[in-house]
Design a protein around this nucleic acid. Sequence first.
DNA 1: GATCCTCGAGTTCC
DNA 2: CTCGAGGATC
Length: 677
Amino acid sequence: MFATDADFKRALVLRDALTEAAHRYYTLDDPSIPDAEYDRLFRALQALEASHPELQTPDSPTQRVGGAPLAAFAPVRHAVPMLSIRTETDVTVAGAHAFDARVRRELKLTDSDPPVEYLAELKFDGLALALRYENGILVRAATRGDGETGEEVTLNARTIASVPLKLRTDSPPAVLEVRGEAYMTRADFDRYNDKQRAAGFATLVNPRNGAAGSIRQLDPKLAAARPLSYFAYGLGEIQGWQLPPTQAVLLDALAAFGLPVNKERRAVAGPDELANFHRDIAVKRDSLGFDIDGVVYKVNRRDWQEQLGFVSREPRWAVAHKFPAQEELTRVLAIEVQVGRTGAITPVARLEPVFVGGVTVSNATLHNLDEVRRKDVRVGDTVIVRRAGDVIPEVVRSVVERRPEGTTEFALPTHCPECSSIVERPEGEAIARCTGGMICSAQRKGMLLHFAARRALNIEGLGDKLVEQLVDANLVHEAADLFTLTQAQLAGLDRMGDKSATSVVAELEKVKHAELHRFIFALGIRHVGETTAKDLAKHFGTIHAVMNADENALLDVNDVGPIVAASITHFFANEKNRNAVERLLACGFEFAPVVMNAPTNAIIAGKTFVLTGTLPTLKREDAKSMIEAAGGKVAGSVSKKTSYVVAGAEAGTKLDDAQRLGVAVIDEPEFLSLFNA
DNA sequence: GATCCTCGAGTTCC
DNA sequence: CTCGAGGATC
């Protein structure tokens, strides 16, 4: 059956409606009709074209995914070469000035001429793609290739939803070749990978590789499954079109043709405004929704662009200022283990040095065995490295597809690499530890470094290099030995002059008057960090009170539970530890007076309170700090050790507990009267 | 007993 | 910064 005039009209109407909706949705990011409505129209057009193939046009929205897989890509010779833009290393304000100065010099401008106008744009992290429109219809898409000859990828380009199959104009140029970047949004990347992972298929390494892989798919159906997007930023061959006078107007014109043009572009005057753009984009970078490498500065006036011309195939009128990559690929050269001060065995990946996030990374921690297994990192693997948040390099995961033959899973050593003691991994714990204790030189070094650390005794000048030498030279075995060091001994060491040696000795002397909590923290008792050390100091006032406290007494300290209490008593029950502390104290420590939990109020000091319900005037926090300031303690649940339960409105089960255990229950006025007694 | 929150410990590079 | 573990809370 032949298509009627009505069928032709209907197909035309459907095509226009769908094209308009897709333009609003993909290119302008401003949907005009619901997705379901789009699907309905789409299926209607599909049905119509199926029964009347002569109604099918090359620009029909149904033709985005079509055609059989290719055997190979056909080469495409670019009429106008696809050049790359010179990438500058100096991306500071000075770099922008250098570019501007070069432009002005070439244009023979003098200081009295006004600032040069530039268009600042984003540098997208994807794959360059040229789209050729003849009389407004997309006829060919090609990759950059070597710049002279690329590959024809028309079928794949048609699957990019934001690429118009037909320009939105009534008088299209005879030939309009658009240059731009195909890329994958982070959302599409995540969605695709989630789907692949769920199906047990290989995932993409990053959006950039996703874009490159998708465009170079021989089967357009596979390409369509990896959704790409597109931004136009320039031109190739043109016939029958009056070129706009500036880059800014050109991009506006491309947008008017219905091509996607990124809106983060700014016409600026002079180099300082270029640098401002760079800075502004750096801030916005993470929220863009897609990856960029940096920014591109282009001389805005086209006649000036022509005047500036090219030098060794790079335009002299444009420059790219990159941002440091946030993720990079590199290879695992080895996985070694480090022994920490507590004996913790930490696997560390030695990496082929790679520039990421602005620095060269060659090591990254793998934390523990579970982590290595979860990320499945092996020696020889290609891995994704990232600088997490701020600074610390992290192995995101291994790229299993690129794993060479014959790799093996990482295994923990059974013996400590430093002292050959047995390595143990307690049941249910993530961390394996060397059992060597102070026999292990790695643990001894770690202990000494912790002792000297900034938040501990803060011994300036005693860093890892010096500790290393002191231990290896048998000058120092334990912390107390530090205080017997002489200026002469120190001055003989590597990288230690007379001056440094003198200042280290002076530091050691000074440190004897540190606050008590620093000393307690410096001892390196397991589970006793800075905060707990402060609590202990405040609670007990002297080092000997802490040393002689039993578990019950320790439980009264803030944030000390059974495990921490046991750890502290265990530490001081050990004769070696006690003696080591005594030897240290004998070096002449005199602690600055401790600001105790002023037990000024005899009624409250040492008592345990439990708060329940809502008090009429006091907030929970206020009551708590009042009690603590007076030397009392606030507990969470009622036990026979509880002195008072302070009950307010809507008191809960704690009130019942108090009555059952015979603990005194008071209200707010009674509570306040305790402070005035 | 489950869940939330805080602390401790280990770590990178310049 | 990150993870794991201990303590507090509900």
